[in-house]
Design a protein around this nucleic acid. Structure first.
Lengths: 197, 197
DNA sequence: AAGTTACGGTAACATGCGTTACGGACTTGC
DNA sequence: GCAAGTCCGTAACGCATGTTACCGTAACTT
């Protein structure tokens, strides 16, 4: 790592390292030293940028949220119709390529780490609720006539399905290839009454 | 713990302790000492029953699988129709009470621990595939006329939804109460064409 | 160009980990 | 009722961890 300070870039680099360790070696090996090695620096820099390990985890968790949020907002802006936006946003939550598979693994890792860590748990709830509200809004926009509780129930079904499929696929890619995940998503959208216009 | 040896019971007790630690304190604190404390014994007993920590985890993982399998087989045997069996079996996979919520948390914990632990990963795949085959069989029995790929896609959608809903609910019970989870399950079954007879 | 500041690498610390070795206590077979 | 064997608690070991203190050095200021 260069000697010239570039704090935001370094923090991002460290967060990406956290995340890489999490994805490739699991939570058990998510140590300051492993993160430093993955970032190509020493523990000194890590502890210089973050007061402690928990702060590093918190930052990485927020980076994960921000990454998916940025991607999702791009997809939503580019979609021609609310239904296309809904499908695109849901599809990016699946484990369809290396990037999204890694994100799913990391997401599960943070979810597991939230148990017994109140701060990570709170962060998880905040981010997940934001995600739910986004889907809720898109379902509402696609189906303006639906009553409130039908929207809510459908939203829960869709996000649960996507999250579950991503988790299952990231742990067993052979059984849940991208085509199967997309077929499942389209079958569900169709079943719930989202007819492609 | 009694001095009189009862190896299987002790192993089960230790496995339940693993699981309790996992559910209440998270993976990070899943240590031999914490397990011994939760089981009310010392590390000596733990290491006497299991050669090492990995064997303990493996056994706890299998216990989780066995528990859900036993419960599910009871539900399936008692169900009057294939559809009732399908619904009951899927519903027990949700996080509806303390028992199933704990199981969901533990399941997520093991899933996260599978990253970087080939043996746990293999165990996860085996157990998850057995679960998928069970749902596949029930969907097939309920809808005998469906083509093979429709059964497969619907099965994937249902198990992903249940697993995802359980994970979301166990991490944020206030947003996903049991009624919401069951409403989602019924809405999905209905949407996919499983009309209650 | 020299002084000053802040960056970050090095090394040490205490702690808690998995694991091992040992020894006392309880059960068992005669 | 005693010797043998099994069970399991105790305590130690080596190691890896999070964290801290320290110090060389690069970059900025004047």
């Amino acid at each position: 790592m260069s000697r010239t300070a570039d704090k935001p870039a370094q923090q991002a680099q460290l967060s990406r390292a956290v995340w890489e360790v999490l994805a490739h070696h699991g939570i058990e090996r998510l140590t300051i030293r492993a993160v430093a090695a993955a970032a190509g620096c020493t523990t000194g820099l890590v502890m210089h940028r973050f007061p402690n390990r928990q702060a590093l985890l918190r930052h990485a968790r927020e980076l994960l949220h921000q990454r998916t949020r940025d991607r999702v907002e791009g997809l939503e802006a580019d979609a021609p119709t609310p239904l296309a936006a809904l499908r695109a946003v849901l599809a990016q939550g699946l484990a369809l390529d290396d990037e999204t598979t890694t994100e799913s693994i990391v997401w599960v890792g943070f979810l597991a780490a939230s148990v017994g860590d109140a701060e990570l748990a709170a962060l998880h709830r905040t981010n997940t609720r934001a995600w739910r509200e986004r889907i809720d809004r898109l379902v509402s926009a696609t189906m303006p006539g639906w009553p409130r509780d039908r929207v809510a129930t459908t939203t829960l079904a869709l996000i649960a399905m996507v999250e579950g499929a991503a988790a299952l696929a990231s742990a067993d890619p052979a059984v849940y290839p991208p085509t199967a995940q997309l077929a499942m998503l389209d079958a569900a959208l169709d079943a719930f009454g989202f007819t492609p216009s």
